[in-house]
Design a protein around this nucleic acid. Structure first.
Lengths: 153, 153
DNA sequence: GCACATTCAATTGCGAACAATTAAATGTGA
DNA sequence: TCACATTTAATTGTTCGCAATTGAATGTGC
């Protein structure tokens, strides 16, 4: 028997998947960021780590992971690359030797000024008003938090 | 001089980044899908490929790539893994020997029925009405398409 | 027909992302 | 104190994702 388009298949259609919308939008963002971040010598996940550090410095790996929803398997090699690029320094905490504290170098601090043009370039690429983007962001964050709540059972 | 919270820093604050909202939501979706897809023996990107093939079979790699915004560097090894799992078959097109056509095996077809429960499980996890999700999806797709339009210059 | 560009998939190399495990440091209860 | 659990990063192995290159097949302009 021939397979035909069926209403029963609608939930499995690619264009009906919000997850694919989110997935493909994330990749689109990545491609927009790439040329901008190349000039800073950063990848997108490295940029996210730098955003965290520009807000608060000298934090354990765990804190960065909680903010970005990433684990040490991702962060350890990434932070070593940032260290190799002389943007951060990794030092064991003296109070708790299990922790590795991540601190910006002077170059890491200085990069913040170069990064200021990035958000507005992305805003321009999105061809969208700030208020619309803020509304979308809030919706997506709310959805993400509901999903994450389910993961923790 | 001490660095303090400044209005000039707002565009660089992690919580103000819609790209991070999208990025972290994509990961949250991935984590929700993981246990569901494990039962099908699929990863999330593999699931996306199967969604494409369940809609239309016997398509060149390029078509799959255009629908999913992925290139051969990602798809070739992924499709080889699907072939190793006996879900698809890869054959050179006789009309154009440059193309590799991807066709579902009987097992690949059969997996569709097992996959039908996935979307509703994710819907439940999102704790959101269908109409809200559809509205969000449309907004995100529109944003994605604007971003992709900029990438093509 | 023949040089040339184009198209398509495969390959290589690098950087995430994550599960699972390991090892060291710390905390806890008896 | 001492056995035990917990916390924290690092490590290992697998899979994506993409840039850049390669090589074969096809299309083109002369």
């Amino acid at each position: 028997m021939a397979r035909k388009l069926s209403a029963a298949d609608a939930p499995l259609r690619l264009d009906n998947q919000i997850c694919f919308a989110v997935y493909s939008a994330a990749h689109a963002f990545n491609r927009v960021y790439k040329p901008l971040l190349d000039r800073l010598g950063l990848t997108y996940p490295q940029y996210l780590v730098m955003l965290v550090l520009w807000e608060r410095d000298d934090v354990p790996v765990k804190d960065i992971g909680e903010k970005l929803f990433l684990d040490s398997g991702t962060l350890t090699p990434l932070l070593k690359r940032l260290e190799a690029a002389h943007l951060v320094k990794r030092t064991r905490s003296s109070e708790d030797e299990r922790q590795v504290l991540i601190a910006l170098t002077s170059q890491g601090h200085a990069l913040k000024d170069k990064a200021r043009s990035v958000p507005q370039s992305v805003l321009a690429a999105s061809d969208c008003s700030v208020s619309e983007l803020v509304a979308m962001k809030d919706e997506i964050v709310a959805l993400r938090d509901r999903l994450n709540a389910v993961i923790g059972e």
